[in-house]
Nucleic acid binder design. Structure first.
Lengths: 209, 209
DNA sequence: GGCTGCTTGTGATAAAATGCACCAAAGTTG
DNA sequence: CAACTTTGGTGCATTTTATCACAAGCAGCC
């Protein structure tokens, strides 16, 4: 039976589902039709029991003796994660990082599309970048309304990141992925996640003695 | 008393230290001299008790009634994380993501320096990119030996990432930061961490219903 | 049809992480 | 200088997370 509604499922479990999905899609690309919690676990470096238990929060997707049908499980995970559709995403910051994100071709197949890019630098406004043209940051609210975006990416220098975040929240966005190396202060209804390579480096160097 | 040697300290604790360090440096840049576990916790959205407990694994850095001297604590954390020096890092992949990483100016102040960039595309080899010129991936081993690098960044397309990882391991690297959306298979002495924005997006969309 | 060999889903159990309460030390105030 | 406030460090309780172990289900085969 498919278990309780969302709220009670641990966030850490939700966090692993995208990794499962990513891996299953790669297996499917390899031509594979079925897999097992054991194979998946070995590939990901986690225990098969954990994978089974994680999935069991949402339903029964496998068959005893056989394992999981890959394309079926992909579909189920996509529904669970709400990526059985395309989410519009706005990007703030048209520097080299913004450019790399805008030009990345791998978003669409996994449920996301960059629908607008903003910057304050008049030299950048109007330039083509990836699928769109750089827009004036002053047009943020209007463009968010037009596109219906709920997700933003911050790729601006550290010292302006908080100000940008404030304006994104003001414009009604509720999910922010922040590449600037700073912890943002936001209202509790806004979910912020962070990407900072140096955090990973420093985690590694601890063990390098 | 400064507690047990490294091995017994939970990895999850180590993972928070770089965030503490990052935040303390920002406070210092703001001209602040002292802070408290409470202030730090509010800023980071975690409990003050957790911060105190995390730090207590390594020694006693605060003063009752006052809190923590920021520059002192920064220095201590830098020593603990071994970033009281500059670590050479090699980057594989000179596409737009590689370019963004190579041009990022924020590494040096936090303990890292890109000392080489590799690609297989002869049109890119020789180009200036950030602080160095793109080198032939075939020269990997030699350049790693010359630079003494132990850390690598993978910024190549998904379908070549595993092959690149194999060669990095072959060349003796023990720490890999992978931007490709794939879980790499490596020997157990190699530490791999991942950055994949879509994983974060999908985590967010779960809650966007 | 009835074995045999796998694999799932899950309740029970173990381990780990977090939060809480307290005390001593340091600073502050009047 | 004494009462009061603030804050870090620490042992304990609680909560969360991961692991174990096994009954039950399915597939293939003789």
């Amino acid at each position: 039976m498919s278990k309780r509604n969302s709220k009670e499922i641990p966030d850490i479990v939700i966090g692993r589902l995208p990794v499962y999905l990513r891996t299953l899609r790669l297996l499917a690309d390899d031509g594979r039709d079925v897999t097992s919690s054991q194979e998946l676990g070995e590939h990901l470096g986690i225990s098969s029991a954990q994978i089974r238990k994680d999935l069991s929060h949402f339903g029964e997707f496998g068959k005893q003796g056989t394992g999981y049908n890959i394309s079926f499980l992909c579909n189920q995970l996509q529904k669970i994660l709400n990526v059985d559709r395309i989410w519009p995403v706005v990007l703030v910051g048209a520097g080299s990082l913004g450019n790399a994100i805008a030009n990345y071709a791998g978003f669409e197949s996994r449920g996301f599309r960059i629908v607008a890019i903003f910057d304050e630098d008049s030299k950048k406004i109007g330039q083509a970048m990836g699928p769109v043209h750089v827009d004036d940051f002053a047009h943020l609210s209007r463009r968010i309304e037009e596109t219906g975006a709920q997700i933003a990416v911050i790729a601006v220098p550290t010292h302006v990141a908080q100000r940008v975040a404030d304006q994104l929240v003001e414009a009604g966005l509720v999910s922010i992925l922040c590449y600037a190396p700073i912890t943002l202060t936001t209202p509790s209804h806004v979910r912020v996640e962070y990407i900072d390579p140096v955090i990973h480096f420093q985690h590694m160097t601890y063990y390098l003695g």
